[in-house]
Design a protein around this nucleic acid. Structure first.
Lengths: 158, 158
DNA sequence: TATTGTTATACTCTATAACTATA
DNA sequence: TATAGTTATAGAGTATAACAATA
């Protein structure tokens, strides 16, 4: 029973520190938040090697998967305000990683794409991300990692 | 194979919207963030019925589980800056839900506790939270919910 | 009229440093 | 000297509204 052993070890550690968390320890939201914090820090540390953060990386990856897409489409897919996209894309453009061109179908919109340098940086970033995922898997346990990925990938948001 | 069916349905929905997410869909961090966002919104909406938010609720629950504990201990347990604790506890105190008393062992510290009203509100909050957890479980699927809770509760942060 | 991108504004969260009173 | 709580400040993230160009 690896499960209760791991959970118990954590509870014990907190009780050693003289503080428990009551009902919180029965709620998925609490554990999701803890894991998300750790992942956020680890992935940003990993991406610092290629001078990116997790948001810039997500933007590059989404643009790479949808060449010619618009700012609004990317904003919607990633849950970023369109007002905030402006500054984020400004930075990526200044770093020479993306291009913004007037769309020919709709001249209000910008068609987004990666520069050759953008593709290179993204490739390096994905190597860092791959190492990061391995760290998560090792820390969570390979079985738990697979279970968590399988379970959470089925969650459909509104 | 409920797994690939669910994952496929989501992918299809995004492709219908004309945009995919590339490598992001293989990363646990992406799904954790998505789930965390949904939970955050749903739990805050639920707690609005008792005029709390998720942070205030976590504070009440932690204080209830550790009567007489200090601000620093709670801050450490929940990952909140001790500077931010001040304002958060000010609000809870003004709402008549907690008491801050000088600790008799260490007169620098505040001993924290719930008022009778704090205990009542917390009880009502936990009923709301319980309903929220059921919504998460239903949306994720009962099996996935159990698997996710079991897997994620074993993650130990630094 | 509605939409894309943009700018401006305000509010919250986070991080940091410094102060006070105690230890 | 170090620690608990507090205050103040600056930076990042988020939400909102309004504007120009285009549909």
């Amino acid at each position: 029973m690896a499960k209760s052993a791991g959970a118990r070890a954590q509870r014990d550690a907190r009780q050693d520190a003289g503080i428990g968390l009551g009902e919180l320890e029965n709620h998925l939201g609490y554990f999701v938040r803890r894991l998300q914090h750790w992942i956020f820090r680890d992935v940003n540390a990993a991406l610092a090697a290629v001078d990116l953060d997790v948001i810039s990386y997500s933007l590059l990856e989404t643009i790479a998967a949808n060449p010619g897409t618009t700012q609004i489409a990317v904003a919607g897919a990633l849950g970023i305000e369109r007002a905030r996209m402006v500054g984020l894309l400004d930075d990526l453009q200044q770093a020479g990683l993306i291009v913004r061109e007037r769309s020919e179908q709709d001249r209000r919109a910008h068609a987004l794409g990666l520069t050759p340098r953008g593709r290179l940086i993204l490739k390096k970033a994905n190597a860092q991300i791959s190492a990061h995922e391995k760290r998560v898997a090792r820390r969570l346990g390979a079985d738990n990692y697979r279970r968590a990925l399988a379970a959470l990938s089925q969650f459909e948001t509104d």
